[in-house]
């Protein structure tokens, strides 16, 4: 259900951006969402559709780019894809791993008219 709060934030961002560019209609909103965020695209789209009624964003579609988790090993600096949420360096087996990708949650681009 946090998708509702997130949908509201997205709407705020895209309406401000549309206004800045003198747009009358927002067609597409591209979202970059890290895998760790656990965003459910269908649910987020559903809420977004619901709250954009009677705004410039009515009818806009949300496109999702899901960013896989990438870790960086602190002892050996190895950067590697984290699969199945296993934060273990394949190079040196250290568990001291920082998340460098996979926590994103951003509006990347909008398409306007």
């Amino acid at each position: 259900m946090h998708e509702m709060s997130i949908a509201q934030s997205i709407l705020r961002i895209v309406l401000a951006e549309a206004q800045r560019n003198g747009a009358r209609k927002i067609k597409t909103v591209r979202i970059r969402a890290g895998e760790l965020r656990g965003i459910v695209p269908s649910q987020l789209s559903f809420f977004f559709q619901f709250i954009t009624k009677d705004t410039f964003a009515e009818g806009a579609t949300l496109d999702f780019e899901i960013v896989p988790i990438k870790g960086k090993c602190k002892p050996c600096d190895n950067v590697f894809p984290v699969l199945n949420f296993e934060f273990i360096c394949p190079n040196c087996a250290s568990k001291d791993v920082d998340v460098v990708e996979g926590m994103e949650l951003a509006v990347k681009e909008i398409e306007i008219e």
Binding site: V14, E17, N21, A106, I110, E111
Partner: peptide, 14 residues
């Protein structure tokens, strides 16, 4: 027209 935004969605909260 495409517009690059790159705004963190949770920024207002943060």
């Amino acid at each position: 027209m495409k517009v690059t935004v790159l705004n963190n969605i949770l920024e207002a909260n943060d």
